[in-house]
């Protein structure tokens, strides 16, 4: 009896910890290889196993962070860490627009601080892209007739809605992730590893104008419009930028 009573308590404990985990459900992304979009040599790279949030961080989740860390309130935030549009769609410091909608109008610094507060980190560009591969496996070429790409393009080309839809309303991908496409753009840790030129660089080692003036020469796959749009979007950012359609999710595990 004693033992059974004890195990019941342990079970209860387990259950409650499951519930708290449930608030921030993560998916395990298995180790594997893929060919990064714009690497000149187009060789597969290895991605180690890691965990990734199933959904983008919601406004109510972010609210918890702001409550515990007042320096990240919209009224307190320092300009170094976010531009003046930070949390623009929130009515007040602790008043969200829509609880289950993804938090957007957050800077890279804010996204990073949030993930670290939760004992996590932002995914790298490679991790994110690897986890987002859909209907197209490593090494396959992008194809205009690919249904999935058509769906992605369709989202990318439609004006955003206000307020944003809630997370986890669409289909999951093969890893159980929601909303990798079709809800918001997402910050990644090394967003600034995308080649960029301001057109004046005299001797930059970055390929000139890869994403700005439209050169497709260095990309592996000129048919992969969806990737072009993601990489172009990332390369237009600075760490302090906050944008309506830009949110994030956190990762865990070795990077």
């Amino acid at each position: 009896m004693m033992i059974r009573g004890f195990s019941a308590a342990a079970l209860l404990l387990l259950l409650s910890s499951c519930q708290s985990l449930d608030e921030v459900r993560t998916a395990r992304i298995p180790q594997g290889e893929y060919v990064p979009f714009f690497d000149a040599d187009q060789k597969p790279v290895e991605v180690r196993s890691f965990h990734l949030d199933m959904t983008p961080v919601t406004q109510s989740q972010y609210l918890e962070f702001v409550k515990k860390n007042p320096s990240w309130r919209k009224s307190k935030i320092k300009r170094l860490f976010a531009d003046p549009d930070y949390l623009k769609n929130w009515k007040a410091d602790e008043q969200v627009q829509s609880e289950q909608a993804p938090v957007t109008y957050v800077s890279w610094f804010a996204a990073k601080a949030y993930c670290e507060w939760r004992g996590q980190r932002l995914p790298s560009i490679r991790e994110w892209e690897y986890a987002a591969l859909e209907g197209k496996r490593s090494g396959e070429r992008g194809d205009a007739s690919n249904d999935n790409q058509a769906g992605i393009l369709n989202w990318y080309s439609r004006p955003g809605k206000e307020p944003l839809p809630e997370v986890a309303k669409g289909a999951r991908n093969q890893y159980g992730l929601f909303d990798m496409h079709g809800l918001v753009w997402e910050w990644v840790f090394d967003f600034n590893s995308v080649p960029k030129s301001d057109g004046r660089s005299s001797s930059s080692e970055f390929p000139e104008d890869l994403f700005c003036a439209g050169g497709t020469g260095s990309s592996g796959d000129p048919g992969d419009y969806a990737s072009f749009m993601r990489f172009a979007f990332r390369s237009s950012l600075k760490g302090s930028y906050t944008i309506r359609d830009l949110g994030f999710r956190c990762a865990k595990g070795e990077s």
């Binding site: 549009d85 960029k196 301001d198 004046r200 950012l237 359609d245």
Partner: peptide
Amino acid sequence: TGPGGGAASTFTAPGH
């Protein structure tokens, strides 16, 4: 007259 015709110099994220 100049690289990119101004493209790279005017590459602008939403809200900027």
